[in-house]
Simulated scan of single mutants.
Amino acid sequence: MHTEASRWFLRLQEADVGMEEIDRAMAWIDQSPAHRAAFDHVEQAWHGPQHGASSNVAPFPQDTVQTSRGRRGWRHGAIAASLLAAIILPLLFWQQLPVKEKYATRVGEHRTVRLQDGSVVEIGGGTRLSVEFRRDGRFLSLTEGEAMFTVAKDNRRPFMVYSAGGVMKAVGTAFNVNRGNDGVTVGVVEGVVQVRMDTPHSESVFLQRGSEESYSTVTGLGPVRQVNPDRIGSWRTGSFSFIDRSLGSVVSDLNRYAARPIYIDHERLKQVHVTGTVTSDGILEWVQALHQTIPIQIIASEQAIHLRAVPASRRSRGKAVAEHS
């Protein structure tokens, strides 16, 4: 009896189960109270007592529930309610695939979306993200900006994020992806994320909590760095931290939140490396302080901020003074 109940229960958990087999399972359960009790026992052993027939699931109304094809309805009760929540709803979701969505945020905007599989994405300012769910997996593309992904676990359908020639694969984890103007940086808050270039036979690195990795189509995968996991995705609280990063990359990030766009007018100035922390409401002050460490001219107007390298003839002890117009 329990063997047959186990067989039906495990079959109902599979991704390719059809409505005909669901009807057959319901018919077997309805044959006798003993069948119903056996199925109930297997379900409680699988999910734990909190998800079994004694869980606080509201019973169905007295009328029967019909499938979309008008097939025989299920009897009301705890087992039917549990099956609806644990089996039928996910099944109907995956039967409706593919699902495609696109998200875009404005400068300074912070948006949180819950995807249809239960995953949560926090999207930073100036970001573009597309999502496609198929039966063989969940595929996302970050074409611009930054996002934090908290992934709902599903071993049968991998969660893949593509960005700037690389791909990240995660199952039940949380990680941040930042696409800058010179590559992508991936940081892991929880779980494990596989990172590789999106090319045949590419090598992979596996990032764990507190690990960070940068890559680009020019340099490939960079070295794995250990960072404070609390700093990963700190943009969500209005704080931006960077260690030995190019000024061009930092400015690219800040421009997604700055009230006025920042332009670097000399290519070699973009390659100067900086370290520091900036808050979203202190971007202008940080920019104006750059001349204390970099020979730079800062020209700020109401429309924009321009950063220019100071000619050698005008440098005074490696510093320049900010100018306003």
Rank of each mutant, 00 (worst) to 15 (best):
L269A: 00
L91F: 14
A320F: 07
A304K: 15
T64P: 10
A152N: 08
H291N: 12
E267N: 03
R69L: 13
A5V: 01
K270M: 11
E212Y: 02
Q292A: 14
E122I: 07
S246E: 07
H76L: 06
V113P: 07
T217K: 13
G191T: 05
F159S: 04
S249G: 11
G282L: 00
E203A: 13
E212K: 12
G70S: 08
G248I: 03
E285P: 00
I264H: 01
V57L: 14
W46L: 03
P33D: 04
V65H: 09
S202M: 05
G282H: 10
L221A: 04
V205R: 15
V205L: 12
G238V: 03
H201Y: 09
F159G: 06
L269H: 02
I22N: 00
Q116L: 15
P49G: 14
V192E: 10
T173K: 06
S6P: 00
A300P: 01
D244G: 03
W8C: 05
S6H: 07
A289L: 12
L142V: 01
V57Q: 08
Q44I: 07
S55G: 14
Q271A: 12
E101Y: 06
T150E: 14
R268F: 09
S130T: 14
R69H: 10
H324D: 09
T277Q: 13
T199Q: 13
K270C: 13
V195L: 03
V251R: 01
F93H: 11
Y103E: 08
W8Y: 08
R7L: 10
A312E: 12
Q44R: 15
A258G: 03
V287S: 05
F149E: 02
G118S: 05
Q66P: 00
A53C: 11
V205A: 09
P229C: 04
D244A: 10
Y162L: 10
S211Y: 10
V278H: 04
T64S: 13
G222L: 03
L290R: 07
E144V: 00
S211D: 15
G238I: 01
Q303D: 14
P229E: 03
S204P: 09
V186G: 00
L307G: 00
V17T: 13
P200H: 05
T143A: 14
Y103I: 09
T275G: 01
S55T: 04
G145L: 02
H2M: 12
I79P: 03
V161P: 07
P33C: 03
R315A: 06
V167Q: 10
A300G: 04
D23V: 10
V113K: 01
Q62P: 14
R315I: 08
V287T: 03
K153N: 09
D63N: 10
R317K: 13
G210F: 04
R134Q: 15
V189G: 05
R111E: 07
A164M: 06
Q62C: 09
P59V: 01
D265W: 00
L89F: 04
T217V: 11
G233Q: 02
S241L: 12
A170N: 02
E132W: 06
T112C: 13
R128N: 13
I232S: 04
A25H: 07
F175I: 00
E122F: 06
